[in-house]
């Protein structure tokens, strides 16, 4: 009677279409709050801020949110498993410095150097992520502490690599990528978008993604279900490192320099984007679509406030307020969801 039933998969194919559709609608509704906030903000700025809706300004906003978006994508994985990665800004500097050295190697053809630099950056990022994940999972140390350590290690490493010197004069072919556009959309933004879509696919459509969510909800249940939570947790940090490596390349292409002090405070922006996007800091709940909207919200806010001429200090206060507001709204959403049962 309770025999294994691998064969029954196909039999109810017809009836199976309804649920995913409904689930998808629910998912979309979950992001509706932040999406609405973004729309409201855009409407307000369109009305009050001159040039806000200009094509060039839209391009600018997309360019400006790119790096944060890339880092926040990796950060989402880490936060979903209930961790946090404070080291991303520093690791990005380390990635950039190593990649910069490779890029300035004149003994190989430029395309080779660019490819090698990209690879180097990503590998350095993934190694740092691996160390973060390994230490925090193996010794069961809070990732907050481990990544705080990595923050210092990577920053020191970045300074050490070139003895605190800034690298510049990269090949033109490389620098051109930073300003290239496709139908008015910055190429670097397209890279970030592709990364978000890939991440979204992984989180929602793959076994790995399912387990990432499950770990954030109930690690013990996942472990007792026979999955290696250790590997999964390490993988989340490695993904974070991977996105940081990509972010470093984007940074270098966009600003044509690699400075050992770059990326200071970027981790907080990335975390803010993830949290504003509705991902719970306790893990297990949230989505990359939310993170995408969160990064957009931060970018639109920064851009719009400058355009309407709000001063630096007030601007900082408003940004902080929005983060707190987002968390309050999220708490309400959770409460409403709880009441729904």
């Amino acid at each position: 009677m309770v025999d294994k039933n691998r064969g029954m998969a196909g039999q109810s194919k017809l009836t199976s279409f309804k649920m995913p559709a409904k689930a998808a609608v629910q998912k979309v509704l979950q992001e509706a709050g932040i999406g609405m906030a973004l729309l409201v903000l855009i409407t307000i700025f369109s009305a009050t801020a001159p040039h806000f809706m200009d094509e060039s300004n839209v391009t600018n906003i997309l360019t400006q949110i790119t790096i944060n978006l890339v880092m926040a994508t990796g950060m989402t994985f880490v936060i979903l498993i209930g961790g946090i990665d404070l080291s991303v800004g520093s690791v990005m500097a380390l990635c950039a410095m190593v990649a910069g050295l490779v890029l300035k190697n004149e003994s190989v053809p430029v395309p080779v150097a660019i490819a090698a630099a990209g690879l180097a950056s990503v590998i350095v990022g993934m190694i740092c992520g691996f160390v973060n994940g390994f230490v925090s999972s193996f010794w069961n140390v809070p990732s907050f502490i481990v990544t705080l350590g990595m923050l210092n290690i990577a920053r020191g490493g970045a300074l050490e690599v070139t003895d605190a010197r800034t690298l510049f004069e990269f090949p033109n072919m490389f620098n051109d990528f930073g300003t290239a556009t496709l139908f008015g959309v910055p190429a670097i933004f397209l890279v970030a978008l592709a990364l978000v879509l890939l991440g979204w696919f992984v989180l929602t459509r793959t076994v790995f993604g399912r387990l990432i969510y499950s770990i954030g909800n109930n690690e013990e249940a996942v472990r007792l279900s026979g999955h290696s939570t250790f590997i999964l947790k390490v993988a989340a940090f490695v993904i974070s490192g991977l996105t940081v490596g990509i972010g470093a390349i984007i940074y270098m292409a966009r600003l044509t320099i690699a400075s050992p002090i770059l990326g200071t405070g970027f981790e907080l922006n990335a975390i803010a984007a993830v949290i504003i996007g509705g991902t719970s800091l306790n893990g297990g709940r949230g989505s990359l679509i939310g993170t995408f909207l969160g990064a957009c919200l931060i970018g639109v806010l920064a851009d719009g406030l400058i355009l309407i001429g709000v001063g630096d200090f007030v601007r900082q206060m408003i940004t902080g307020g929005v983060i707190i507001l987002a968390v309050i709204l999220d708490s309400y959403r959770a409460r409403i969801a709880d009441r729904g049962r």
């Binding site: 801020a49 001159p50 040039h51 806000f52 200009d54 060039s56 300004n57 600018n60 360019t63 400006q64 790096i67 940074y251 966009r254 600003l255 320099i257 400075s259 770059l262 920064a302 851009d303 400058i306 355009l307 001429g309």
Partner: peptide
């Protein structure tokens, strides 16, 4: 550098 880039881009739009 990065912040100057962002800030000035927005100034230029305004």
């Amino acid at each position: 550098t990065e912040e100057a880039n962002t800030v000035f881009t927005n100034m230029l739009t305004a």
